[in-house]
């Protein structure tokens, strides 16, 4: 009576998959590590899937990692384990991935899934925001790209049409020599833990002047928080930053960040720690 069979598809190619998506509204499953938890029923009952299911985790077209000029292309269905072993993936992203879940989940979970699940606690997201990642989408009709900050709209909300699939994540213009990077994940334990608050920062300086600065906070709002206008105030400042500049930047974020209380932590804690990590990052010497 309640259980009704649903169709499931595991197509041989990306094109066949896209063609299936153009025919009916389907539920995409990559690694399934978010979906299987979200759609779990109480013990003994089947998962709550109400649309035909399309598996994409095996599609070779979605598992490539390559470089075009300065841009790094990462297939949406690359798993964390795969990315952690690939020479083109920036070390700072590898560090973030190493702190995700535990080996079993890292063998299944994908970067496309992390983005499309669009949780503010998603651990690749702060860095992807800092890299100004572009999301490449394809449907049977064609292709487009979106900035990650536009693509992600809120918890579990992304700007994706029903017939579209995320094919790649592009990290544009990644220089050979990386800037100073920091990623900090704060959680209740060292594995299999959901982020209470995270921070990512990057800074480039030359001859005692800041050339570029980017700051991103996770799990302090409905989406990752990045503020271009505040970052802009750092550009051109003398490096190392003096206390007054640092205080000014911290104060700006103090009024911007409005994290909430939940069963994982408190708003006060999240905010204090976010600002602590920010200040620590800005205090870097050489």
């Amino acid at each position: 009576m309640v259980t009704k069979a649903i169709a499931s598809y595991r197509m041989k190619s990306l094109d066949e998959t896209l063609s299936q998506l153009s025919k009916e509204d389907c539920q995409l499953i990559a690694g399934g590590t978010d979906l299987m938890v979200q759609r779990k029923s109480p013990r003994g009952a089947p998962g709550r899937f109400d649309k035909p299911v399309v598996f994409i985790d095996h599609l070779k077209e979605l598992k490539q990692i390559y470089r075009v000029n300065q841009d790094i292309h990462i297939g949406a269905c690359c798993t964390y384990s795969e990315m952690m072993e690939h020479h083109l993936i920036p070390n700072i992203l590898k560090k973030a991935m190493k702190e995700i879940a535990a080996p079993a989940i890292r063998n299944r979970g994908t970067i496309g899934g992390n983005i499309c699940n669009a949780s503010p606690a998603g651990d690749t997201l702060p860095l992807l925001y800092i890299f100004n990642a572009k999301i490449r989408l394809r449907s049977a009709k064609g292709e487009r790209a979106a900035e990650i900050r536009d693509f992600i709209q809120g918890p579990r909300k992304v700007d994706r049409l029903k017939d579209e699939l995320v094919t790649e994540i592009i990290l544009p213009e990644v220089p050979e020599v990386q800037p100073y990077f920091v990623f900090e994940k704060v959680a209740n334990r060292r594995a299999d833990a959901i982020t209470k608050i995270s921070f990512a920062g990057s800074m480039r300086w030359d001859e005692g002047r800041i050339q570029d600065a980017r700051l991103a906070f996770g799990a302090v709002g409905p989406t990752i928080v990045r503020a271009a206008d505040i970052e802009q105030k750092l550009v051109g400042q003398a490096f190392p930053l003096n206390d007054k500049v640092i205080d000014g930047i911290v104060a700006e974020f103090e009024s911007l960040l409005k994290p909430i209380d939940d069963h994982r932590s408190t708003g006060v804690y999240r905010k204090t720690v976010a600002l602590n990590l920010l200040r620590h990052f800005l205090e870097v010497r050489a």
Binding site: R189, R190, A191, A193, I194
Partner: peptide, 9 residues
């Protein structure tokens, strides 16, 4: 994971 008993790590 919300309750947070220790892992091997």
């Amino acid at each position: 994971s919300d309750y947070g008993p220790p892992t091997a790590m």
